[in-house]
């Protein structure tokens, strides 16, 4: 039996959990520095300050897209970063959420605030049904199976034009609340921000719960976890469903915000993009997920000015970051900062 210690488990966090388990001396400073309290505070602070830098609807648009992507990625990170299960099909769940909102509001006259949870429940049920057979697979077979699910969803959406508007997509009317149309960057910025904070809060709590510890065990060594009595499948299914529901909610938000949905939302590349955001920011780090989502949402906007060189540069950045920071931006930059601090302290 080899190393049982989970790998996606930073030294920093280990210290924190140990001290909590022992019920001893978490100094106020330590509490402040922890992901749950300090990180959350920083996120809220950034969300509050960011509008000062945004001067028009387009910039709000980019910020909102960052937030919506971040919700998906925070959920997906639970699956990839903590449970160690890859999914190349989460764009499918995202698109299902978006289309559930679009179809329920336009074709059945439901209110958006009702369509979103209905969509999320539907997606959750669907994820639950497929999770058991799919999560029996591992590694690249799991990647293929989830990819297949995503592609089937994508094809179904673009073929069933009577319901979905087909490959050209469909409109979603602006959401009305008490007779007021929800339109414009600022309103949606705060709506998405609230959902993002909720998603991050949920994720952090889940990670710090006994479930989270079991999950980290999974990532480290599944067989070991199983032999020590952890019902691995149950936890994997649970996280799969949670991440699918989060993707669905984000999809609903994007449908109402952008007032337009297309089957592209379910495309293979959209799935890959979500996974890239998880890894780019740093696996098994909730704030890494947020940073990854923000960075990769902003990047194409910054690169748009390079016209035909855009894709070359994007591909190059993805490769270089992953080669030199295989753990992702946040953990790698964090390690760099720590090293420098230590050097400074020494000199």
């Amino acid at each position: 039996m080899a190393d049982i210690r989970p790998s996606g488990y930073s030294k920093h966090r280990k210290k924190q959990t140990y001290s909590r388990r022992l019920g001893t001396r978490a100094t106020p400073l330590q509490t402040l520095m922890s992901e749950r309290v300090g990180g959350m505070g920083a996120l809220i602070l950034v969300i509050l300050v960011l509008p000062l830098l945004l001067s028009n609807n387009y910039q709000y648009d980019v910020a909102i897209s960052m937030g919506i992507n971040a919700i998906v990625v925070v959920g997906l990170n639970l699956l990839i970063g903590y449970a160690g299960q890859i999914s190349l099909g989460h764009a499918g769940f995202y698109a299902l959420g978006a289309y559930a909102s679009a179809i329920l509001t336009t074709r059945y006259g439901l209110h958006g605030a009702l369509a979103m949870p209905l969509g999320a429940i539907g997606v959750g049920l669907m994820a639950y049904v497929i999770a058991r057979p799919i999560l029996r697979l591992s590694g690249h077979y799991l990647a293929m199976a989830t990819l297949g699910v995503g592609i089937i969803i994508n094809i179904a959406i673009s073929r069933e034009a009577w319901l979905t508007g087909g490959p050209d997509g469909m409109y979603v009317p602006a959401m009305q609340v008490a007779g007021v149309e929800l339109y414009g960057g600022q309103i949606w910025y705060w709506i998405v921000a609230a959902f993002l904070i909720l998603a991050v809060w949920l994720a952090l709590n889940l990670i710090d719960s006994p479930i989270g510890r079991a999950l980290r065990g999974l990532h480290g060594a599944e067989v070991a976890a199983e032999t020590s009595g952890v019902d691995t499948t149950r936890y994997k299914v649970m996280v799969f469903v949670i991440s699918a529901v989060m993707a669905s909610v984000a999809g609903s938000l994007s449908a109402h915000f952008s007032e337009f949905v297309t089957p592209d939302k379910a495309s293979f590349f959209h799935s890959i993009l979500f996974v890239t955001m998880v890894v780019f920011g740093g696996m098994a780090s909730t704030f890494g997920a947020v940073v990854g989502a923000a960075a990769l949402t902003l990047l194409p906007q910054l690169l748009a000015d390079f016209a035909s060189y855009e894709h070359m540069i994007l591909g190059l950045i993805m490769m270089v970051v992953m080669i030199f920071m295989p753990k992702g931006l946040v953990p790698s930059l964090g390690a760099l900062a720590r090293r420098r601090r230590r050097q400074e302290a020494r000199s």
Binding site: L32, M33, A42, L43, V46, V49, L50, L298, V330, L333
Partner: peptide, 18 residues
């Protein structure tokens, strides 16, 4: 963590200003 995160977001903010 706080510092790391705020720094990353400051980068994003700076890009927005740009």
């Amino acid at each position: 963590m706080v510092k790391r995160f705020t720094r990353a977001l400051m980068m994003v903010g700076a890009a927005c200003i740009a």
